[in-house]
Design a protein around this nucleic acid. Structure first.
Lengths: 159, 159
DNA sequence: GGTGAAACTTCTAATAA
DNA sequence: TTATTAGAAGTTTCACC
């Protein structure tokens, strides 16, 4: 968990790659007035350090017919069942993230579904898990985008 | 918002790109026993259709010193202030997602911070927004990974 | 629709500074 | 650490199935 020191150049490279992982290193080099070889070395270093864990596509789930997002808070009968329930939750389709939390809920998860009908099926599966006392659903009416670039800037500016 | 029909080949291409956006099209072609040209055309089609919105890096925020995740439920004094408050929330650093929700909270957001101390600063900024009545914080003790590949499979299998 | 090959661009690693 | 360079590799287009 060693902290890694990123300099301005690393930061700018990350910035461009966060926006588009397939941007050619030659383009990055041109913009930053360095050589493509340097970009290559810097990226490799960040990969080796584990800062860059990988890359993934940004998909439009709405276009795929999955525009429904809800958060579901889960209350357990016994906290000792957390691990078991978390494992069961991970088996349920359309649950995209699950967190063990302090505070109101024991476990907290996000689901992505086609519509209310479909979401209901997913939530029923959560309710059916042994050890789950009850669930509380919050339907997302509007999502304001998760901006990695913004977070990266916040992080970089606070150093 | 036209739905797009993906076939098995499209699905498999997405699958490989979700794992690693920089995997060469020639590798995808080899694995799927099609030509690299076909992979190129398929990807372009999915990009044009907007299914693929872009690509981004997966970063290790822990390694950057930001291992603290919390969800914050926001209660408003008046629902009519939702839009205003959402705009203010989007200006606050380290808030990574915000949702307008039905159910318990009016607005619901996720924050990523260095530690409890740092998170406190962020939450205080949320509390200070005009129109915010109070907030309720849930600290994430454990996050189980968001697997896009899994969701893609769930989607593809349910068609 | 898909293929295969040509032309073009980019990557990568070795060498040099 | 960074720049240059050249061979290897990948991308993209297009005539032809």
């Amino acid at each position: 968990m060693a902290k890694f020191k990123l300099d301005e150049v690393d930061h700018q490279i990350l910035d461009m790659l966060i926006d588009n992982t397939r941007v050619p290193f030659t383009d990055i080099a041109k913009k930053l007035l360095i050589s493509a070889g340097t970009v290559h070395v810097r990226v490799k270093k960040m990969e080796d350090a584990g800062i860059i864990k990988g890359s993934s596509l940004t998909l439009d789930y709405k276009k795929l017919g999955y525009s429904f997002i809800a958060y579901v808070g889960v209350f357990l009968k016994n906290t000792s069942q957390t691990k078991f329930v978390l494992e069961r939750i991970n088996e349920i389709p359309f649950v995209t993230v699950a967190h063990v939390t302090t505070g109101k809920f024991n476990v907290f998860c996000k689901i992505r579904a086609k519509n209310t009908e479909h979401a209901k099926d997913v939530i029923f599966m959560l309710d059916d898990i042994e050890g789950v006392y009850r669930t509380e659903t919050m339907i997302s009416l509007e999502e304001s985008l998760n901006d990695k670039k913004r977070l990266m800037h916040d992080i970089f500016n606070s150093l």
